[in-house]
Design a protein around this nucleic acid. Structure first.
Lengths: 198, 198
DNA sequence: GGTAAAACTGACCATGTGGTCTTTTTATAG
DNA sequence: CTATAAAAAGACCACATGGTCAGTTTTACC
């Protein structure tokens, strides 16, 4: 039990740092001082191992970082701003950011492993559905302009978030974050409910 | 000469489709009906091979797809809209989109291969510098609101473009493109020069 | 036709990979 | 203490990988 969890945690760390195909089962085992036997006692294969990591670690973390924080009846634009800000802050400090891990793995497995892609896309879909719902509710509650296309806004938000996380890796993450957030607010201003000036 | 080019073209195709670490030199050679000797006669190593692909193919294509089209004295927002639209259109039709390839490789090599990352980041920087310049010129020419932070806008544009390309791979690329473009225009409306209503 | 360099062949090597299997250790319950 | 099963060890295998190298073919030029 404890061993299984240690394996998954360490596995995710290494897969994230070096990529899935670039990390061998032995790498993970060496780090944990465990043997091949222990690994294949708990998991059917490397792929099965990774799928379990997705479900047990990645999915849960994405949920608690990107989905839970935007639930509620407040202004969704405020909530999303705060949520993105927090998520990117962990990235600035070089910690593991599960939102980024997700987009990273999406790139790595795209067109290469359908089984794993299916599981990753499930997480993306959950996020998307939740964003759309939140935005629609916000529109209903008068926070968003009534002409806003919520599906489109959700796609745009997810895109920009995934993208900025890719950019932040190369250089000056704090500056990238600041710039990104300023323009996100700019965009939000353009879709928020207009004050009637009569 | 011809062989070298064939190798690079096929190499990029396979690296793009299967990833760098997931594509063996033999894979490329098999496709071209060539031998190991031919490969190592032309290139020092697999890494050297890839670096040359970046410089000879990727950099040039990114330039002609994402940089050249936004040069000129017209409204930069119009030019960028058209440019993104064109770039994403090739992606909808499952062709190789070099903008996407770039962000894809950025993900694959991030933290794994510094030499290759350096070359990829060079391309990103060129794009960024060009975007910033174009936006600043647009501001000077009265197309953009004078309060716009051009560095921030460039970061935001690059982010959203990279991100949407990741999202488009999973499902319904045409719909994703449409939604993305609609919100991009929305964002552009919020940073364009305001008409004086007095 | 001769010759020298360029282009290419393919067998070979060391190393690393995911995965198997038998054996041993460890924990648990009667 | 012992029987039993869970957990872990680690030697082993077949195969793939990046890379080397001595040798052969092709090309271009005098």
């Amino acid at each position: 039990m404890a061993t299984m969890q240690r394996m998954q945690t360490t596995g995710l760390e290494l897969f994230y740092a070096q990529g899935y195909y670039n990390t061998s089962v032995d790498d993970i085992l060496k780090r944990l001082d465990l043997s091949k036997g222990a690994f294949y006692y708990h998991f059917e294969s490397k792929e099965d191992f990774f799928v379990q990591i997705i479900q047990n670690l990645l999915a849960r973390k994405v949920y608690s970082m990107l989905i839970e924080p935007i639930e509620g009846h407040d202004n969704p634009l405020t909530l999303i701003t705060k949520c993105f800000d927090d998520a990117m802050e962990t990235a600035v400090h070089n910690e593991m950011d599960y939102g980024f891990i997700l987009s990273n793995f999406l790139s790595e497995f795209n067109g290469k492993n359908d089984v794993i892609m299916k599981h990753l896309n499930e997480i993306v879909t959950v996020w998307e559905v939740n964003l759309v719902t939140t935005l629609q509710k916000g529109k209903f509650n008068g926070y968003l302009d009534r002409h806003v296309d919520c599906e489109a806004a959700a796609t745009f938000l997810m895109s920009s978030y995934f993208g900025v996380r890719t950019l932040m890796t190369s250089s000056a993450p704090a500056a990238k974050k600041y710039r990104f957030m300023s323009q996100l607010k700019q965009y939000f201003k353009s879709i928020e409910a207009k004050v009637i000036t009569s």
